[in-house]
Design a protein around this nucleic acid. Structure first.
Length: 297
DNA sequence: TTCCAGGCAGTAG
DNA sequence: CTACTGCATGGA
């Protein structure tokens, strides 16, 4: 009975650069970082379990911390998506190299992966919580939501949480989330989307089956609470679509402004013009531009 | 104090 | 179609 496995690293894969964008333990409530390893809980068939990710020379090692060995397959599938391990970044790096104003991104961040949110419901809820407010406050709201409505799992003396399932939020009255300092409007969005998931009117599988990115965006935009920014955010972070741009994103705008590529509030058309040469890699360019905000000046 | 944060829907013109 | 407004709170 195996309780660990190794996922081989693709080319251009830097575990520590990926780790840096995951957020510290006080910010993030859905995993722990410990000495360069990550501990996270997932669920298989309603049974929560936890596993640890650590780096080895040849790949990422996954160790189950509890539960049955057949949970490993769930963890492997999750980590491959989370770290976007099934993509060859070479074409992206070719495009960056050709661009004098952006090639510095490659020098700093080669090996950084998209770092998605594989669970579509979690990605939608997180992006709604993050609308308009600063990230640290958004993280507090997420933590309160998770600690109040997510499943708990204790492993090795630590409490792990799973993101709440739609079933946990769907029955709520929006006012029930006000004590968490989630706005009435956002509570309505979250609960409405929970109900759509329960009714089977949204699912990751369905969106993945659409194929055409334009049609996926149209589908998402019909949902109350999802605008252009949120639709593209989840297309990038959860569906791993290659050309999603979170138009209007304040972080993206300030990254472009700092590079003197735009004014402070560029239009969609101005952003499109900058991204146009990066067809197939617009989501990655967004990730790398976000990351550039951490560089000095 | 005012303004802005990883926006959105609703309304008015 | 575009312009404006309230929402929630915290930090600069």
């Amino acid at each position: 009975m195996r309780s660990s496995t190794l996922i081989p690293k693709p080319n251009h894969f830097d575990y520590h650069k990926c780790l840096q964008v995951l957020g510290d333990n006080d910010f993030e409530c859905l995993h722990f970082k410990e000495n360069g390893t990550i501990v996270k809980a997932l669920s298989k068939g309603g049974h929560p379990f936890a596993f640890r990710i650590s780096e080895e020379n040849e790949g990422l090692k996954l160790d189950l911390l509890n539960g049955r060995s057949n949970y490993l397959a769930v963890a492997i599938f999750y980590v491959r998506e989370w770290f976007d391990m099934d993509r060859d970044l070479k074409p992206f790096y070719g495009l960056l190299n050709e661009n004098p104003k952006l090639s510095f991104l490659l020098e700093h961040f080669e090996g950084l992966r998209l770092m998605g949110i594989p669970d579509l419901f979690e990605a939608l809820c997180w992006s709604i919580l993050g609308q308009q407010i600063n990230l640290s406050f958004a993280a507090k709201l997420k933590r309160r939501l998770v600690e109040n409505y997510g499943e708990r799992l204790e492993v090795e003396g630590k409490i792990h949480y799973l993101f709440p399932r739609p079933e946990a939020l769907a029955p709520l009255d929006p006012e029930a989330l006000r004590p968490l300092q989630i706005s009435q409007r956002k509570a309505e969005y979250l609960i409405g989307i929970s109900r759509l998931f329960l009714e089977g009117k949204i699912s990751k599988q369905h969106l993945e089956g659409i194929g055409d990115a334009e049609a996926v965006q149209e589908t998402l935009l019909k949902i109350r609470g999802i605008g252009l920014w949120t639709a593209n955010y989840v297309m990038m972070k959860s569906l791993l679509l290659p050309n999603a741009i979170p138009y209007g994103d304040s972080g993206l705008n300030s990254a472009l402004y700092r590079l003197e590529l735009t004014n402070k509030r560029p239009t969609k058309e101005e952003v499109d013009a900058i991204f146009e040469p990066f067809d197939g890699w617009k989501s990655y360019l967004t990730r790398y531009l976000w990351r550039s905000l951490s560089l000095n000046t």
